[in-house]
Design a protein around this nucleic acid. Structure first.
Ligand code: ZN
Length: 526
DNA sequence: TATGCCGGGTT
DNA sequence: AACCCGGCATA
């Protein structure tokens, strides 16, 4: 699989490519150096200079670009930034989901009108590197001069552009500034908008969603559970919480993710959704700037509709395994650590500022019923009891700790942008999974690259569960049926999980104020 | 038993 | 207005 093909060795230096960063996403950069062999197994290693200034050594199979991997040969992670051509113009997008099996990538893009929408594309219609700035959208922020145009494996519209690997850009990395990720076009944020910066920064901190594998639970978790203050102050991009990303990847980990990460969160975060209604409630406070508060690393389940937050990695893993992966036995080693894909690290800050991405997964739009069943399933019963236990020791007893402010990163489903449409019958892995979990007969393609983990259901037959759950789906019809019998007004409880459920009692301080007061939740509205 | 939150206190 | 909480409806 590894296209470790060499192309003129000398010419690759300076080649614009995208390389894998420890958060599992690819970021633009250029090959700075090439060390033949190094690892007998994986071949030469390449020193990558990311456009944002970070650097890292990677293997050929971790590079996407001419002569290396192609987009289609890798699994794009949620949150991966990339570019596509939309209406003749290149626009940045964020990967929502990548179905390798069908070579379909669901991308969220911000439209010129400010709205967002999800688009499906084949990998060969996507690029990880900007081919050129769309003059009009990208005003401000003169940034890297890109011209570097080699499309990674793309030809797309401008067929003329040959694939010659350009030799890098003239003025490369710009130093880190508040919003490095600048190139995102309609970035509503302006320099003066300090607060936003902070948010972004926070988000970034919080984002590194690289989840280490942490072999077995306990043992590893502690370290990551302490609060350390980041460098603070607005802009501070480099602040970096502990998160030692994946061990396997690099060793020195003094930086968080490269630039684009910000872009990733920036837009997602502030844009839409969250702020909308949430603002109402958190807004009051966000005014003050504090960012030096301590942050704490927590783990949030990214399974569609779940969003459960746990204090320890082992807890979240267990949660995922138990509740979403059909309770694969956790035994030891060897098991594919699939659960890693369903949770992400998040940083919680001590203040009550923000909003959470959780909205995204939770507030579900009036989507198809298909969704509901799933949600129910995942959500379903035993969720909570199972995970709490893990909260034992090191996790800091959170009774009075505070952190609130949190963001999640990789969110799987299309829940990303709650509001608006997104009726698109997207098929996200987890969804498929859950479906298959209960009923193999159900539509939807098989799980992508995922594993064919032998999930076995407990007692009910698949069908049973399916029916059972579908039946429960509150929304769907409800009204049409049994007119009279229908209770006069049995207010069916909202299907959305509120703070209490999402964050759990153990993280009460993360709840929205309304929830704390036992009032109607303002964060996860219906 | 657990969640969501109304209604009605207190501060 | 912010904050707290008894207690009920719902699941
Ligand atoms: Zn709430």
């Amino acid at each position: 699989m590894f296209t470790n093909r060499r192309l003129a060795k000398r010419s690759i230096i300076g080649t614009k490519i995208s390389a894998l960063w420890q958060d599992g996403r690819y970021y633009p950069g250029s090959i700075q150096n090439y060390t033949a062999e190094e690892s007998m197994v994986f071949g030469p290693s390449y020193a990558i200079q990311f456009d944002d200034g970070h650097r890292k050594e990677v293997r050929a199979n971790e590079i996407i670009g001419p002569g290396f991997q192609t987009l289609s040969s890798v699994k794009l992670k949620y949150g991966q930034k990339l570019y596509l051509t939309l209406n003749g113009r290149e626009v940045p997008g964020i990967v929502i989901d990548h179905d390798r099996e069908h070579d379909v990538v669901i991308i969220n893009v911000r439209m010129s009108n400010g709205g967002e929408s999800e688009i499906e594309r084949k990998t060969d219609e996507l690029r990880l590197i900007e081919s050129r700035k769309s003059a009009r959208l990208v005003d401000q922020d003169t940034d890297y001069s890109k011209l570097a145009d080699l499309a990674l494996n793309t030809n797309e519209n401008k067929r003329s552009r040959t694939v010659s690997h350009v030799i890098d850009v003239p003025s490369k990395l710009r130093h880190r500034g508040p919003n490095i990720e600048g190139e995102d076009q309609n970035n509503s944020q302006t320099d003066d908008d300090v607060e936003m910066d902070e948010n972004i920064a926070a988000m970034v901190l919080t984002s590194l969603s690289c989840s280490p594998v942490s072999p077995h639970f306990h043992g590893s978790l502690t370290e990551k559970c302490h609060l350390l203050s980041s460098s603070a102050n607005s802009s501070g991009f480099h602040s970096e919480p502990r998160s030692d990303p994946s061990p396997p990847l690099s060793s020195h980990l003094s930086e968080s993710c490269p630039t684009t990460t910000g872009m990733f969160f920036g837009p997602l975060g502030k844009d839409e959704g969250i702020n909308a209604d949430d603002d109402m409630e958190n807004s009051p406070e966000p005014k003050r700037k504090r960012s030096l508060g301590m942050t704490r690393t927590m783990f949030q389940c990214t399974w569609k509709g779940c969003g459960k937050v746990h204090n320890t990695e082992s807890a979240i893993e267990k949660h995922v395994r138990t509740n979403h992966l059909g309770g694969k036995d956790s035994d030891s080693d060897m098991s594919d650590h699939e659960e890693e894909f369903y949770y992400t690290e998040i940083e919680v800050n001590v203040d009550n500022v923000t909003k959470t991405f959780s909205d995204m997964f939770t507030s579900s739009p009036p989507d198809h019923n298909y969704m509901d069943p799933v949600q129910y399933i995942t959500d379903h019963d035993y969720q909570r009891k199972v995970d709490i236990p893990e909260t034992k020791p090191e996790t800091i007893d959170m009774k009075e700790h505070s952190y609130s402010h949190m963001y999640a990163s990789s969110v799987p489903s299309g829940g990303v942008f709650p509001h608006q449409e997104l009726t698109a019958p997207i098929s996200m892995p987890q969804m498929k999974r859950s479906l298959s979990w209960q009923n193999s007969a159900v539509n939807l393609s098989p799980v992508s690259s995922a594993v064919s983990s032998p999930i076995r259901m407990t007692k009910l037959s698949p069908q049973d569960r399916l029916q059972q759950h579908q039946a429960q789906s509150p929304k769907s019809h409800m009204f049409g049926q049994s007119p009279k019998s229908a209770a006069l007004h049995k207010k069916p409880r909202s299907e959305v999980r509120k703070c209490r459920k999402v964050y759990g009692m153990e993280n009460r301080e993360m709840w929205c104020t309304q929830c704390k007061w036992k009032k109607a939740c303002s964060r996860f509205t219906d």
